[in-house]
Design a protein around this nucleic acid. Structure first.
Lengths: 344, 344
DNA sequence: CATGAAATCGGAAACGTTTGCGTTATCTGT
DNA sequence: ACAGATAACGCAAACGTTTCCGATTTCATG
């Protein structure tokens, strides 16, 4: 039941256990003959290196903590997938944790990860307050944020340009003739959302549109709460907007579901634009137009930066803001009013 | 930069470091006065227990390895989410690994998890050969399989009743008047799929239907390969079936996409039944009828069993086969032939 | 053959914690 | 007040590995 140790095979091989260690590690201070002999015995006895013991002496665990706000969310799980890939390629394993969008749980798992002596941590912050609440910890262990950028955080992060993403989307909708565009799913506590709202307001200002919001008071995002919010929204007719800019694809999917139920046609009656470009936005009969977050690139650069820091890289934190991309599918069309006015 | 240790605070508190350890652990062999004094110093100096060192002496890591065939797959990520929840509730963290459906990589990560001294392992097997290939390892560390059941594996597993699930689905399709039902996505190497194919053949035999298959030679399942396979299938007209039983929801989504492109209406022209009931099956305009796998229950029971074994539970392995459930949505309707014959 | 360098290996410390055991001080009962 | 019990704490071993240092052997070179 218990594992076989260096001492066990040292006894069998009649050498000291430091010799066995050298045989395993590929050291040059050992003859090829004894190396092969020891290695054979290791194989026969089924030896596996005890990483716990190794970590004790080397001071590293080859482990990276990944803190997500939720696992059961396509954006997060796609991101997790990429992060897992890139960390594994770099020789690290990940311990997966969820903050459940709660600042307190976020603190707990961060401390836990420190206790486990993770070499570094990649975190999608739970809220605006995350950095402040983790500040003292971050000084102890290399950390990089994903998707929560703020000018005044002296920490490495990689994020999509949320401001530009929203502006890009607004320009698109406006070019389609929409002038009454509702921002759906504003979430007060969220860092990324506040940046997006800024972009929305800037676009409205520039084009003389009046802003409309539908707030999401929950501190998370799902199809279901998109659906519930949309049901509320659709209960007041006539609809004072011709397009909805959803702050996430999952919310957008919920909106489409509610619209379907309430006899509102997408995109004929209202256009819907999402954010994230999760893989399900591409689904048949859904074909959600959206703003893409370069998830793989975000994961790749975050891992690269983190591994660099772990290996001792110095200098200013990497504060990388990646360009978003407009993905045109079928959920946005020319505004009905404009079409009408063109026909008259 | 480096962490503060027991010795550090022992020095400050002017006690031995065993006393500090006792203060932290809640031992009775210490006065309340010194405990509070020590605890305060710990707080001030920012002490965090080194789990690596603790693991060295206790022999446990409070870590569970989770090996999935893929992370970027809704069934898997939903499962992972539940597993993470239940393990955390039981005081364990999970190290997430992917086997990428490869037997070799599965072996590697299993060994790696053993090297990390995971207390137990939950694994969704990569293929039929998984048990045989892992047999020697499984004797060393408590392991429970999810979703890969086989009568002759002397190991704990929890799975949905794949046979019954298929039969249930077939009965439903047959009750709708379908007699030409294609099994889509048969995957030769897969354990679960072979059980499902048995169920399919049994149903065909019972009702005198002739079996039709569309094989999936890739060793993984995705929307994309469902789409590609369906494109091939739809290139030969007329279609020799009125219903498709897809072996997974993701494949079913791919089929729907291909059908959409090729002018085949779902469900008017063909009915489609899925398997898994991933959350996106519920999407508006998709409304995929499917056979549900009780994912949360599977995760809960698997974790329960594993934790039991870790804590020393003896006896026969738990071999639990949970009942599936038919979820009727909108992708299956009465067969066109039957409707036609009724009208004439 | 003598000398020194290089090759090969053993010994032992160290990583930070838990815990059994021994020691001292304090308390209880008579 | 004294024996014995109990409370409170220090000491040291142990977990399995890596790595520095020293010891021994081998070997080439003069």
């Amino acid at each position: 039941m218990s594992y076989v140790t260096l001492k066990d095979i040292a006894k069998v091989a009649k050498v000291s256990y430091s010799t066995v260690s050298r045989a395993l590690s590929g050291s040059k201070e050992i003859s090829e003959a004894t190396r092969q002999r020891v290695l054979n015995i290791c194989r026969e006895m089924g030896y596996t290196t005890d990483f716990v013991a190794r970590s004790m002496v080397t001071g590293t665990t080859n482990t990276i903590g990944l803190i997500l706000t939720s696992v059961n969310n396509p954006f997060m799980s796609e991101l997790a997938n990429y992060v897992e890939q890139y960390t594994r390629a770099a020789g690290y394993n990940i311990i997966l944790c969820s903050s459940a969008h709660e600042l307190e749980q976020e603190q707990q798992v961060f401390q836990l990860l420190m206790g486990r002596r993770a070499d570094g941590i990649i975190i999608v912050p739970a809220s605006q307050g995350s950095y402040a609440s983790l500040e003292t910890f971050i000084k102890k262990v290399p950390t990089v944020f994903i998707s929560g950028n703020s000018r005044d955080m002296p920490v490495s992060y990689v994020s999509v340009d949320n401001h530009q993403g929203i502006v890009m989307g607004m320009e698109y909708l406006i070019s389609l003739g929409h002038r009454d565009i509702l921002y759906f799913g504003r979430r007060p506590g969220s860092l990324t959302h506040s940046v997006r709202v800024e972009g929305y307001l800037a676009s409205c200002g520039k084009h003389g549109l009046n802003a409309q919001f539908k707030d999401n008071t929950n501190n998370f995002t799902s199809i279901h709460n998109g659906y519930e919010l949309a049901k509320e929204l659709f209960s007041h007719r006539p609809l004072p907007f011709t397009a909805i800019f959803a702050s996430s694809d999952t919310n957008a999917l919920g909106i489409i579901k509610a619209a379907d139920e309430d006899g509102i046609r997408v995109p004929e009656d209202i256009s819907i634009l999402g954010f994230d470009n999760i893989s399900y936005a591409d689904l048949p009969k859904i074909e959600l137009s959206t703003i893409e977050q370069p998830k793989e690139m975000m994961a790749a650069r975050a891992v690269e930066e983190l591994v660099g820091r772990i290996r001792g890289k110095k200098g200013e934190p990497l504060q990388l803001i990646l360009p978003p991309k407009l993905i045109k599918r079928k959920s946005c069309v020319k505004a009905v009013q404009e079409t009408a006015s063109l026909q008259s």
